[in-house]
Design a protein around this nucleic acid. Structure first.
Length: 236
DNA sequence: AAAGGGTTCAACCGCGGCCTT
DNA sequence: CAAGGCCGCGGTTGAACCCTT
């Protein structure tokens, strides 16, 4: 079928890391118009980015409710199990971890879990073991320091304010702790999450239809957010 | 203190599929 | 029905960061 002309065919399209200004423009626009119709985003916002880039930035970084940083043993176990069931269907896996992006899960799989599965080849059958082992693994890696202060991002405004912090720090080359001001907030409503909420129910239904028993376990497991790994069904 | 190697992750690329005309 | 256009997904890349020597 007709393939979209690649963005990089166009002149004047900016690539590379997004600046906080660009983020603010994008978030403000989506705040007003909602996500979708990505084709029109660059035109309407004046951003020198291609539509794909805008969509990616939104879904992987700016979207409200995205959780970043360390994966919990519970999440890790889910990823491992879902990956063994579904293969590299990161979007499908992400639909079971609504606060994580497919890109995040994919990265985490490629950088952490693949290695761990090499070290613990039987781990897919014994996720709790792997998960606790991974905690040990994490605490020895440099990443741990990086992600130590990770937190749950409640809104795109918070995402941006964090970005601004980082940006400002880079500029000044000073890293003062405890900046909690939210200069990035531009009246972004607290009901963002509801407005742009995650629509995963259909996906879940599809998957459960296709693959009944294991995912039913997972459904229960996932829905019981407070459940720790120790409460996993014995099949794990 | 500096260099080199390894790791991480944000962003890009290209393909496939769905929708519209 | 066919062609074109757009969106979403998975794989890959490369800059930035961290660790080791």
């Amino acid at each position: 079928m007709g393939r979209a002309p690649c963005c990089n065919d166009k002149v004047g399209i900016k690539k590379g890391p997004w600046t906080p200004e660009e983020d603010i423009i994008l978030v403000s626009y989506i705040q007003e118009n909602g996500p979708g119709n990505w084709r029109s985003v660059p035109t309407n916002t004046g951003l020198l980015r291609c539509s794909k880039s805008c969509r990616l930035r939104w879904t992987n970084y700016l979207r409200p409710g995205i959780k970043r940083g360390n994966f919990t043993p519970h999440e890790e176990g889910m990823i491992i199990h879902l990956q063994s069931l579904l293969g590299n269907k990161w979007a499908a896996i992400a639909s079971y971890l609504p606060r994580r992006t497919d890109n995040d899960i994919k990265n985490y799989w490629n950088t952490h879990l693949k290695k761990k599965l090499k070290i613990f080849p039987s781990a897919t059958n014994n996720i709790p073991q792997l998960a606790s082992a991974s905690t040990t693994y994490n605490s020895h890696s440099g990443l741990n320091k990086l992600t130590e202060k990770s937190s749950v991002y409640a809104s795109s405004a918070e995402n941006i304010s964090r970005l601004l912090e980082g940006w400002k720090d880079k500029l000044t080359q000073k890293i003062p702790e405890s900046h909690d001001d939210h200069q990035g907030e531009k009246g972004i409503k607290s009901d963002d999450q509801e407005k742009f909420g995650f629509v995963h129910e259909q996906n879940k239904q599809k998957l459960t239809e296709n693959n009944n028993s294991p995912l039913t376990f997972l459904e229960k497991w996932l829905l019981d957010e407070s459940a720790g790994m120790e409460q996993l069904p014995s099949v794990f």
